[in-house]
Nucleic acid binder design. Structure first.
Lengths: 116, 116
DNA sequence: GTAACTACTTACCAAAAGGTAATTGATATA
DNA sequence: TATATCAATTACCTTTTGGTAAGTAGTTAC
């Protein structure tokens, strides 16, 4: 009975992790979200933050994040045309997840240096 | 000056996130770690937790996690041979990251249902 | 008129990730 | 002798991901 209960908790957690993973999976999504955590940005500004991303990948991943309500695209009819990307409330709600990711990333690197 | 400082913070965070992403990237690593957060497990037990993983993938990802000091492999000379996998301290240090991942995963699903 | 800036898109290709199915090898049981 | 369990491994194939390079379209400065 105890063991079965514990098993169910594990199954529940495995399912919840899938939803989050579907969004953060991929080389560029987390970097894009981190960049936008530092303020609304234009296409070119994100490209300059993430120096090794190609316009194709940036465009593709911005579309994905917009479709999943993580970011918003706003077109300004200025001359030269500008497009601003910003995080939605849902996007902003990833903040503590990202903080833990960064914290663990730093800890992991520190441990690697210490042990090798 | 202010803007430049802010930019440097963003760059630093982008770099830290890469280290973490290199480890958690992939379809199966996070599920395996979650499974092991619920106790040390044998190969077959993890397979039963994560029902749709193939032995090839499980074996491959366990090796990766072992190489990166996230888990430990212990062979028991019992008959039938058993192999136990457990989290290292480094592996256990992912706990709050995983908690945030699960929390956000649940929030994300809830928001999707609410808005569509 | 031509070069540059904005924000992309498109075609093509290579590499990585992941799936399927069969097999391995040691031991134990019927 | 045949079958089952445990923990994988191997070969082969498909899908997904990501990279490169070039092009597009509108506006503006020289």
């Amino acid at each position: 009975m105890e063991a079965k209960r514990k098993d169910e908790v594990c199954q529940f957690r495995l399912m919840a992790s899938r939803d989050a993973l579907d969004i953060i999976q991929g080389k560029w999504r987390i970097p894009i979200i981190i960049s936008l955590m530092h303020g609304n940005k234009r296409f070119g500004e994100i490209q300059r933050d993430i120096t090794d991303i190609s316009p194709k990948m940036l465009s593709q991943e911005l579309k994905f994040l917009e479709m999943n309500k993580i970011i918003t695209r706003t077109l300004y009819d200025s001359m030269p045309i500008t497009v601003e990307y910003s995080l939605t409330e849902l996007g902003k709600s990833m903040n503590s997840l990202l903080e833990e990711l960064l914290k663990w990333g730093l800890y992991f690197r520190k441990e690697l240096v210490r042990k090798d």
